[in-house]
Amino acid sequence: MNNHNIFQHHQHAHCESGVTANLLGHEGIPISEPLAFGIGAGLFFAHLPFVKVNGTPGTTFRTWPGAIFKRVTERLGITIHKEKFRTREKAMRALDQVLAQGKPVGMLSSVYYLPYLPEAFRFHFNAHNLVSYGKEGNQYLISDPVMEETTQIAPEDLANARFAKGTPEPNGMMYYITQSPKEVNFAKAIQQGIKQTNFFMLSPPLPWFGNKAIFLLAKKIKKYPQQLPPRKAALYLGNIIRMQEEIGTGGAGFRYLHAAFLEEADTLLKRDDLREKSQELTAIGDQWRNFAYSAARQMKNRNSDRVSYDELSELLMEIGKQEKTFFKQMEQLKW
């Protein structure tokens, strides 16, 4: 067991890559958030018109919850323990036992039940990651990577957050590191992360996942003015913007975060081609931002002006094409 009892909290852009970076840092493995995100192949895109989240079609710019922590620890040879629970009592007792050993514990939670977050963010989003690193009286000490400072939470609130219902259901999921190597091989892990990101963006044969889904969304947006009442069309657009910009993505739907990863990979592996790729992805990220900006203007007007929806659709088509070229070139990299 490690003997550094003081948990170092760092604020990060995204909850899961942030928790991963903070937990590994506590084990004496220095890893930045972009590095955790890239090694964990966090970048993705999916649009699921038939899965309605609070009445709007699901859109995501990242891989599924839990994948980043799992991949990063696997790739760096770190052993972890993960556990779900049937009851709140068992889940809280198990958490107390691990905390008593001085181990920080990662947990899945629902942001709806986290009183320290601003109300503006508190929807029923059930895949938020946070760390508890100890107790003071009966209050849990919390390191939430999206917060500037550490905070505390009452046991009742934490239990509610861990046992929220809906999709997905955290079922009290907690995870912590049990063993970590003295030295880690970042080079190989970076390569695996890059290859997996390419794979998930380019190879899914279904229209809802990866690069193909960007074109799908572009086609759908074109039809919004014909198919939806103005209020609904505006809500659909708003949801895409929130997924892209508001929900801890580090800007431009994780594209800037992944570009930061490529830059750091270049520094670690001494390959200038990754630096170039980083710059290209930054330029693509700028276009995502431009899309969000235009979509927000369209939303504010709330007039189903077909021309503007056409323009938004074209902006996305262009982004889709450029990302396709980008990831195809990433596949060509020699290792």
Binding site: E33, A120, E148, Y256, E263, A292, Y293, A296
Partner: peptide
């Protein structure tokens, strides 16, 4: 690349408020 603290920007605020 560097980490910057941000109060957010117009597009996402419009979306938050609208929701």
């Amino acid at each position: 690349y560097t980490e910057v603290q941000s109060a957010g920007w117009e597009a996402e605020h419009v979306a938050t408020q609208q929701a």
